[in-house]
Design a binder for these strands. Structure first.
Length: 219
DNA sequence: TTATAGATTGCCT
DNA sequence: GGCAATCTATAAT
């Protein structure tokens, strides 16, 4: 297996433009499926952190009991009712941030929760942010999984917080964007969403089939 | 004003 | 496999 850092240089990565706002101006389920294989990029001074999206979930609006938008706009979820292509970051369980991207036009809620990434760049910085101790840079999937496999983990690895990133436009140039390098998943599959109790039977979680960086104990 | 559940993670047995 | 940690938005009083 090639070392992820070698797949693409940061210079090549920096040439890729963000997915346009119209990409997100659709039903969250369609956006979630098409976001699989795209690259989440965090630009820092002199550094770039990047990971390929391998797992996500769609949340709808007032017709989805599991969605934060289910009971209408509040101070917390306002971004969901704004224009598409914006980051909705929330704090959960007293410990973790989760990253979503808003869908549909202003006035209509819907979003995609980014649940797992395959690390591509900035791995040493991710290791530090996660507070992990390895004997040298991690190269095996079993180690790399600890960086960004899970919604809380990937936010910590990429330094995504509500204060810093909530409301940020990820469809125009900035320090948090999603880009397309042409990669297309061979096969995707859908399952029920993780960790919810309402509308728990709906299959709105999407994964790249067989990808070792999908969250959960069995990957 | 108080209570409770939550789109998770990591440690313990 | 079980469960504590730790904060906050929202519901209940």
């Amino acid at each position: 297996m090639p070392i992820p850092e070698q797949l693409m240089t940061p210079a090549e990565l920096s040439k890729l433009r963000p997915l346009p706002r119209e990409f997100y101006n659709r039903d969250a389920r369609k956006v979630a499926k098409e976001l699989l294989g795209k690259i989440l990029v965090r630009r820092e001074k002199g550094h770039v952190l990047a990971g390929r999206i391998v797992e996500d979930e769609a949340y709808l609006g007032t017709d989805d009991a599991a969605a934060h938008a289910a009971s209408g706009p509040t101070a917390r979820n306002l971004v969901l009712f704004g224009p598409p292509g914006h980051a909705y970051v929330y704090f959960i369980y007293g410990n973790h941030y989760c990253l979503n991207v808003s869908c549909l036009p202003e006035g209509y809620a819907g979003c995609v929760l980014i649940r797992a990434l395959e690390p591509l760049h900035g791995i040493e910085r991710m290791v530090r942010r996660r507070g992990l101790k390895f004997d040298g840079p991690p190269t095996k999937p079993s180690e790399l999984r600890l960086l960004t496999s899970g919604p809380g983990r990937l936010c910590q690895a990429m330094a995504i917080t509500r204060a810093r990133d909530n409301g940020k436009d990820v469809s125009t140039e900035g320090d948090l964007v999603i880009v397309d390098d042409g990669f297309r998943p061979k096969k995707i599959s859908s399952t029920p969403r993780v960790g919810i109790t309402k509308a728990a039977e709906e299959k709105r979680r999407y994964v790249i089939s067989g990808n070792p960086f999908v969250s959960g104990k069995r990957g």
